[in-house]
């Protein structure tokens, strides 16, 4: 294998990761880690560094398109970022004491969970009555639709905050955005409408990943030779994805992608159990 070929394959893989990540809302990291570890036998620690870079690139690359539409709930995102960034720092500390095989198995389990979450039906209806805390923290909001502004109220703020902390820990430990857990916290626990939870989650992924990326950069997990094709590929893919999103039906794409990542996940778990990392 020479450097040029490695770079070109990685560039193509990162492009597809950014594309799939922005279309399905799963982020770029879930594709980058298996590609590097299973495909190129790269040490999982370099792969985690690359996945963090990919998560930030997908998030910032597609968030710049979403924020413009005024759907993102900035206050909700900021409040929950206390949980995710604190979790991410804890995850980055735990990473030192976690054997790499366990990291691979956890990653596989997380992938299967993400695949299931992608296919689950989300809440689209807005609550009319929020919990007390939702008023105190000014988390209720509204978003524009073709039929006019729809206002929504939130409940179970504590539950959502707790799940977000776990999402942050896993993000710091595995290098992924944990978008699926973020949507679970907002959708199932807090009843944030689907369009708002998707964009707000994406908005938060970049900040969460940045909180642990500063640690991993100092630890030497981010290799320049791996990082540059990942940045370029993921950004180009996320950009294409956000353009395509308006025009294509992502439903069948989500099914195909979910099956694919479940197979990859089983492979990661199998290799993790057999100490192949």
């Amino acid at each position: 294998m020479n450097i040029l070929l490695f770079t070109l394959i990685l560039l193509l893989g990162a492009y597809l990761a950014g594309l799939a990540g922005s279309l399905t809302g799963l982020g770029g990291g879930v594709v980058i880690i298996p590609l590097l570890t299973l495909g190129f036998h790269v040490d999982i620690r370099y792969a985690i560094g690359a996945a963090l870079v990919a998560s930030i690139a997908t998030s910032s690359g597609s968030a710049s398109a979403y924020v413009k539409e005024g759907i993102t709930n900035v206050r909700l995102g900021m409040f929950l970022e206390i949980a995710t960034t604190a979790g991410a720092v804890i995850g980055a500390i735990l990473a030192i004491y976690t054997p790499v095989n366990l990291v691979a198995i956890l990653f596989g389990v997380m992938l299967i969970f993400s695949a299931a979450m992608t296919l689950r039906k989300k809440h689209e209806d807005a609550l009319q009555e929020g919990s007390k805390l939702s008023y105190v923290l000014k988390l209720n909001g509204s978003y524009p639709t073709k039929e006019g502004e729809i206002s929504y109220k939130l409940k179970n703020i504590g539950g959502g905050f707790s799940i977000m902390t776990i999402a942050g820990v896993l993000s710091g430990l595995l290098g992924i955005g944990s978008g699926a857990l973020k949507v679970l916290a907002m959708d199932t626990a807090m009843r944030v409408p689907f369009r708002v939870s998707t964009t707000t989650s994406n908005f938060m992924v970049g900040v969460t990943a940045a909180a642990s990326a500063v640690v991993y950069l100092q630890r030497g997990y981010i290799d320049p030779g791996i990082a540059f094709p990942v940045i370029i590929g993921v950004l180009a893919g996320a950009f294409t994805g956000s353009k395509l999103l308006m025009r294509i039906n992502v439903k069948s794409l989500k099914v195909i992608f979910s099956i694919a990542i479940t197979l990859i996940a089983l492979n990661m778990i199998y290799n993790g159990i057999n100490h192949k990392f």
Partner: peptide, 13 residues
């Protein structure tokens, strides 16, 4: 390249 990485990480911050 690492400068590009640092700018990418700095963006959400």
């Amino acid at each position: 390249i690492q400068l590009g990485v640092v700018i990418l990480i700095a963006t959400p911050i």
